[in-house]
Design a protein around this nucleic acid. Structure first.
Length: 432
RNA sequence: GUGGCUGUAGAUCAAUGGUAGAUCACUGGACUGUGACUCCAGGUGUUGCGGGUUCGAGUCCCGUCAGCCACCCCA
């Protein structure tokens, strides 16, 4: 008589089931996640990235210092609690992103000493307490990479090319947007100039934009509600770039062009996290995601390692939203599937025992085999084989056991092949 | 956090304020020897939840929760 316990708001189950919330909204299945993850697992190591895992829980301080106290993520979206288990209270948060954690691990283990140039990739759930909408959930999954210790533009280029390759392999329609935020001095100087300009035009701006002059003036440039001529007249970052920062950005653009990676320079591309410097980039889906169309975003964070107690080590990384990618894969009908090679339908008790033994030996040979576990007529068992999308079905009755031969039915074509039960492995290998 | 829309069977949706239904899916049977076609049978639904109005509420009103979409922000 228990009542149902509802799931936590903004979280969702990912099942191997064909569940549709409504007719034109494909529900995410595990197969969509697996497709994206396996593409990452095969692509990233080609570029020398190795997987790293860090805890979901970190001290709140890490995110406050790493991501920025003033950001929305840290200011109001983290799941934070006090952990008093060791006598004194420590503030703990569930990670809202993974870069700060990886930098902490990098510093913690003095990786700089043993491997000055390091490339890591990661995968896992992140948590932000936001109001959900399409492609945005409170628990979501990110796949990302970080490259530590390389200064020049070639690593930026290599990483963007890798992101391009991965998304292309997944069949995602996207455009790569590219910008530079300049080095450590550029951004504050540009920001100040922008604020001066916007304050001078306050009277003509919307209330939202006026409020953002102080909090996030760069975002004002992205406003959809203000007069374009005001936004276009704003000071551009170009005028504030140092020679070194400009040369770096030119190097990135030249490298991408040389490797044939398409991109668009987008001066309004701003990354929200405080740690970004110089190169920033975003892969933006060109269809299918509504307002949450950024599918991957990243850039340089040259000061972050030092800020978190390490050496003066450069970094570049990106993070991709798996749910957003999965929605696009779902819309395109692309999905990883695991289907059995063979479904065995035994007709009686003795046949069931024989079927179990056959299945065991086939599985030992690496073949996926499903055995009917319920006693039913052949038609129903065939129906089950069909539902599982088995490649072949085999009916096992008394005749087959005494003769040692059976008919292997290929479900897609309906063709039947007579085979010997003793070398089913070879027969299946030959047919598939 | 702000705003808009929506909550009825596993799914998609019906039901003038008056007996809660259809289709698909699922299970079984027709059919102890072969799935997709056909026919038949099978539903104990907290109508999201809680109040209110009414002789009577799935339907009207209020609240609340959840989902969706947008703002904000971000992957």
């Amino acid at each position: 008589m228990g009542s149902r316990i509802p799931p936590v708001k903004g979280t969702r189950d990912v099942l191997p089931l064909d569940i549709y919330k409504d007719s034109d909204e494909p529900w995410l299945r595990i197969g969509h996640y697996q497709l994206i993850e396996s593409a990452a697992r095969t692509t990233f190591p080609l570029y020398g990235y190795r997987e790293a895992r860090t805890p979901i829980l970190e001290r709140t301080e890490l995110f406050a210092r790493g991501i920025g106290e003033a950001t929305d993520i840290v200011g109001k979206e983290m799941y934070t609690f006090d952990d008093g288990a060791e006598g004194k209270s420590v503030s703990i948060s569930m990670r809202p992103e993974n870069t700060a954690s990886l930098v902490r691990a990098y510093v913690q283990h003095n990786v700089q000493q043993s491997e000055p140039e390091t490339k890591w990739w990661y995968l896992g759930p992140m948590f932000r307490r936001e109001r959900q909408q399409k492609g945005r959930y409170r628990q979501f999954t990110q796949i990302g990479v970080e490259a530590f210790g390389s200064q020049g533009p070639r690593i930026d280029v290599e990483q963007i090319e890798m992101l391009h390759r991965w998304l292309t392999a997944l069949g995602i329609p996207f455009a790569m947007h590219l910008n530079t935020l300049g080095d450590g001095e550029t951004r504050p100087r540009w920001k100040a100039a922008l604020q001066d300009y916007l304050r001078a035009h306050q009277a003509e701006l919307t209330a939202d934009s006026v409020a953002r002059i102080e909090t996030n003036p760069i975002r004002v440039l992205d406003s959809k509600f203000d007069k374009p001529e005001i936004l276009e007249g704003a000071p551009r970052i170009d005028a504030f770039l140092s020679d070194a920062a400009r040369a770096h950005f030119d190097g990135v653009k030249e490298g991408l062009t040389r490797l044939g990676v398409p991109f668009v320079v987008d001066p309004r591309l701003v990354r929200g996290l405080d740690y970004y410097t110089r190169t920033t980039f975003e892969a933006i889906a060109t269809e299918g995601l509504g307002a949450q169309s950024t599918v991957a975003g990243g850039g340089r964070y040259d000061g972050l390692v030092k800020q978190l107690g390490g050496g003066d080590v450069a970094g570049v990384g990106f993070a991709a939203g798996v749910e957003r990618l999965a929605l696009l894969c779902a819309a395109a009908g692309r999905e990883a599937s695991s289907r059995p090679v063979l479904f065995i339908a035994p007709l009686g008790e003795a046949e069931e025992k024989k079927a179990d033994e056959l299945a065991q030996s086939l599985r030992a040979a690496g073949l996926g085999v499903e055995v009917s576990l319920r006693r039913a007529n052949v038609g129903n068992m065939m129906k089950r084989a069909d539902a599982l999308s088995a490649r072949f079905a085999l009916v096992l009755g008394g005749d087959e056991i005494t003769s040692g031969r059976a008919k292997l039915k290929e479900l897609k074509t309906g063709a039947q092949h007579e085979v010997s039960l003793t070398d089913l492995v070879a027969a299946l290998g030959q047919l598939s």
